[in-house]
């Protein structure tokens, strides 16, 4: 029907602001002629019900609410600190390992060659006198 769109627009406007007398009259006239728009205007009450269903301002919260948030923030900061220092720690570890490997390689390069089969031979000379060991037996001294 003619005017339905205007009716919808004015119905919407009426929720945000006061309508002029002319606008209010148009709504009333149109609703008397258009059954569908009259039903919608009646359903506008549903939006008022919606507003009434809002939770109260002084909504009761769990007593631990603030403590929980503070604890969560503290844990998060700790994590952040770890993640902040983690790259530096990894870098330092890699550098330390590299230094150790370098030292190891350097000390090996200067060390005498090590082998399980040395060049040369060892002989036992049985003709030589056995080495003289010092006499540690002090009891003979007293006699």
């Amino acid at each position: 029907m003619l005017g339905c769109r205007r009716h919808a627009r004015l119905l919407d406007k009426s929720r945000d602001a006061e309508l002029s007398t002319r606008e209010a009259l148009f709504l009333a006239n149109h609703e008397s002629r258009c059954e569908r728009c009259a039903a919608l205007a009646e359903a506008d009450w549903g939006l008022s019900v919606l507003r009434e269903q809002a939770f109260p301002e002084d909504l009761e919260l769990s007593p631990q609410f603030t403590a929980n948030v503070v604890a969560m923030v503290r844990v998060d900061r700790g994590r952040e600190r770890v993640s902040y220092w983690a790259p530096a720690m990894v870098g330092a570890t890699v550098a330390a390992i590299a230094v150790m490997v370098m030292l190891q390689l350097f000390s090996r390069a200067n060390a005498p060659a090590f082998t399980n089969s040395p060049v040369g031979e060892a002989r036992l000379d049985r003709s030589a006198e056995p080495p003289a060991f010092p006499n540690l037996d002090r009891s003979s001294d007293h006699k």
């Binding site: 809002a54 939770f55 109260p56 301002e57 002084d58 909504l59 919260l61 609410f65 603030t66 948030v69 503070v70 923030v73 503290r74």
Partner: peptide, 21 residues
Amino acid sequence: DAAVTYLVNKHRNRLVRTAAN
């Protein structure tokens, strides 16, 4: 932490109410 507590206490009711709605 005291600052966190203050800000949470200040805004919590309104924030929870909005989220609840």
